[in-house]
Design a protein around this nucleic acid. Structure first.
Lengths: 239, 239
DNA sequence: GGCTTTCGCTACGAGTCGTAGCGTAATGCC
DNA sequence: GGCATTACGCTACGACTCGTAGCGAAAGCC
């Protein structure tokens, strides 16, 4: 059999990635949901090669000109293999871009302002990558007409970011920098508001205004955000 | 000649639209830039019909499945006519979506907070339209790899929004709600920051979080933003 | 009437899509 | 080791879209 493993890049191992319930495998998941123990297992190396090839194609071609045939060729796999694992271009790109957000961390820098600035700068550096710029907005646009795709994005990209907001807030509350919120519903709304403001501003700055979210910008933005949030306790629902 | 004017919807007049230098007509603009007075003029009704058909197709199909042939059929024009006026799908969608933002106004409601809330609610109501949701993000994604398209979006969508920010700020400064900024460079940076925060948050709330930017959300957001900006005078470049 | 430009229509090669079918490879179970 | 089961590579296919070329006719200006 003329295998071409020599063409596959060194993909590391990545048995099924560090993600939770991502990589749902489009169509045939429900029919083998318990555990398909028998038969030839899917190649984990092929997974990694395909996702890497997808990011490479995003850089070279952008989303609209990216074709699954080209990705398959780059990854050194057959086009049919690709269709067996992903339902279409959207799902593939979501998974490929989601891996970029794996390295988002929240190092404890001692103050809420410093923590936020650090996370926002990390987020900005990811959005500065061309594979993230071309891919992320395109799948978000597609998701406006595809509920399942929206859920996939939420699970693999958004929720991972939101966890950082939650963690940072609880730290800040422990430090006394933010007031505690006993009502869980109100607390969730606050987290949603913060998240929309942070992610929205960085995305808009990077992709629409097309200017870098550098340290000066992030510092100003963080200042405005924190002062506004801190003042919210003094104006609780001032209708 | 088997014309099919019966198929063209009642497009109104719209001689060349209320836009400034939009509708650049892709390729052949530079060769007829002074004024082409001779020959058969282009049908303004066809322009309006094409843009309306584009929005209709965005609602029915979304960006990725929208084809120029389908738009031409819906508009009752030949596909070649469409290609004579627009360079491609991206430029066409930008123009079609840009018309949605024409009705953005800044009514003077007496206070900065009320002005901002009014504009943000208008912006949110436009983003709630399916033709705006599917189209806008897609062209922004494409623009990450196309400088000319980015400029087209800036001229026809972004700048029109930014003018509202400028106008609202000058009103607020006249009222004493915001401190004056003598330095024009710093002033421009402030406007950019506000704009990225407002537009980014609304877009993220509407398209990524997929939840409505209703009055309650807008009220909270506006409060955080204004308190943060008002406090900036007290912390001038405390970095 | 001449000149110029636009318009509708048809036709075309090139490229992509997603799937079917086949033979082969790699596992687990007996 | 043999068997069943699943994954893989490869080829081929009809259907669709793309963007353009060419034609005759229409609609303006002089």
């Amino acid at each position: 059999m003329p295998r071409r493993d020599s063409a596959t890049p060194p993909p590391g191992d990545l048995p099924h990635g560090p993600h939770g319930n991502r990589r749902v495998y489009g169509r045939e998941m429900q029919s083998r949901s318990p555990a398909s123990r028998t038969g030839r297992p899917r190649s984990a190396a092929a997974d990694a090669a395909i996702l890497a090839a997808t990011r490479e194609a995003l850089v070279d071609l952008g989303w609209s000109k990216l074709t699954l045939g080209d990705v398959a060729t780059r990854a050194g796999v057959a086009k049919t293999t690709l269709y067996r694992r992903w339902a279409g271009k959207n799902e593939l790109v979501v998974d490929a871009v989601a891996e970029l957000f794996d390295e988002l961390k929240l190092p404890d820098r001692g103050s809420l302002a410093a923590d936020i600035e650090g996370v926002v700068l990390q987020f900005a550096s990811i959005l500065a990558l061309p594979e993230a710029r071309s891919g992320l907005m395109a799948v978000v646009a597609e998701a406006t007409r595809d509920e399942a795709l929206r859920e996939r994005i939420r699970a693999s990209v958004v929720d991972r970011q939101k966890r950082l907001v939650l963690e940072g807030r609880s730290r800040a509350q422990a430090r006394g920098e933010l007031p505690p919120e006993p009502d869980p519903a109100s607390s969730a709304r606050t987290v949603d508001l913060i998240f929309d403001m942070v992610a929205g501003a960085v995305v808009h700055r990077t992709l629409v205004s097309a200017e870098p979210a550098d340290e000066e910008w992030v510092h100003r933005f963080t200042g405005v955000l924190l002062r506004g949030l801190a003042g919210e306790a003094a104006h609780p629902a001032d209708g």
